[in-house]
Design a protein around this nucleic acid. Sequence first.
DNA 1: TCCCTCCACTTGCAATATGCAAGCAGATGG
DNA 2: CCATCTGCTTGCATATTGCAAGTGGAGGGA
Lengths: 163, 163
Amino acid sequence: MAQHGRSGCPINLTLEQLGDRWSLIVIRDVMFGNRRSYGALLSSSEEGIASNILADRLKRLTAAGLLSREPDPAHRQKAIYSLTEASIELVPLLAQMGAWGRRHTRPSRELSVRAGLLEDGGPPLWEAFMDELRHLHLAAPPPERSVFVELQAAYETAMAEKG
Amino acid sequence: MAQHGRSGCPINLTLEQLGDRWSLIVIRDVMFGNRRSYGALLSSSEEGIASNILADRLKRLTAAGLLSREPDPAHRQKAIYSLTEASIELVPLLAQMGAWGRRHTRPSRELSVRAGLLEDGGPPLWEAFMDELRHLHLAAPPPERSVFVELQAAYETAMAEKG
DNA sequence: TCCCTCCACTTGCAATATGCAAGCAGATGG
DNA sequence: CCATCTGCTTGCATATTGCAAGTGGAGGGA
């Protein structure tokens, strides 16, 4: 039964965890940008997240089990954030968000290249990407195919074409 | 190019339109509950949306092209809200949200039955459902199969079993 | 050891969004 | 003609967001 929220509907419960303007942006940057620390997330933020909002979201997402946090051995005051299985399984959701946004908003061409690849690749590509994320974030064995590199290369090509 | 928002990323642009706690709840109720008027949305709201928030979201979603609004011929002061092609194409996104919520939150059993059917049916079922929504909301020809009735029947069976 | 810089994160405060309760005006129906 | 209903607004308290500045501990060079 639903414990504390507004209702026990799974769509509602997902919205209660992720339905704000920043949570999924943070997860997107960890996932697709491989930004793993507070500083990396703050300074390279395309959308310009405020520092207090970022700190708050890192706490909330960690508490909710969507990120894990461990100290950086090289830098005592730094922490490394990783995706968890729960957030890795957001890949299909983010892919659908990208696909919808590509069709029904006016995205910039460079930034929609990755979304296009993810959409065209469909569930098999998503699975391969999720396996790779399990390797990068959960110490699973490395996958044969690096979707991450493919996505990044496509993005950089598009950026170069743009000039 | 991105016009006014935070960035041209399609995921971000989707979040700017739908990334709040209520917009997708309203769309969900119109879509799966076939609630087409202000009153129906307000009174049967599982989550108890406040009347001012509902009024605001109906305006914003209509302005954004995710709902259309036309006067009810039978009831002069009443309006009928319909999905648009853009919001009908949110079906895969909502299906993924339901699927994720089913796995990673604690939904009530009755309310997750529909999400389970949608997940199991996959893209072919989503397409059939979207065709049906086009019939119900956009005056497209009726489909052969009524996914709507199947989902509703499953939900009601689950409710009856619950007692 | 001293000091300077860097960096993860806080704090203060104004602006905006949310939630609740009550209100209102036009329509409906007897 | 009047009571009621209904779609929607208003007022106001509280929560969330956004911006700018600050803090405090580590790192690192002299």
